[in-house]
Amino acid sequence: MGERREIKPSCFDEIGRMNQQIEYKNVFYPPGGLLLWMIIALELTTFGIALLVMLFFAKEDPVLFHESRLQLNVTIGTINTVLLLTSGFFMANTVHELRQNNRSKAQRYLLLTMLFGLLFLVLKVIEYAAKIEAGLVMDTNDFFGFYWMLTFFHVIHVIVGLVILSTVLWGIRKANQPLKMEHVEGSAAFWHMCDLIWLLLFPVIYLIL
């Protein structure tokens, strides 16, 4: 009997196998996973309907909604869009580097992803503080009711996304821990979903009313 060798779990082998197995052209295996895409569809539908309800309220009182919208800071909104999209860019690169079995680069990109996500939250806190100071709170009028509800709900998604990315970072850092690419892609899809929600909210709330 030969000596039995214990094979240490390797995240890279695991990642390599996962890449070969996933057939994205199959309708049940979209990149990020079917379950995540069901959640994304649900979230985009919910936010989409809420925005459309807001637009129908605006139709009832266009002057109030327009004047309220003018009190929002478009520059902060634009910078926030840049921050989230840049964060999404680094997330896409994290996934790419992990597929190339490059853990150190992936870790660096994931940290940058989280940094830009945190900067988004910092700017959001500054924006919220200015609104509260100006007395523009949830019960000021219908516009600010929608503004607070929709943007705050999005902020909660970003916070949850950062927690999920922290678990991915923890997995990448543990060298002897198997890391399934499926999980990384699912986490990335959730993070990109935060971008998508913001890309719907920003033009409607900040620009067109």
Partner: peptide, 15 residues
Amino acid sequence: VTFSFMEMRKANPFW
């Protein structure tokens, strides 16, 4: 974001 960053260009036409 969807077709490039989320790689949905590789997905089934349904998506």
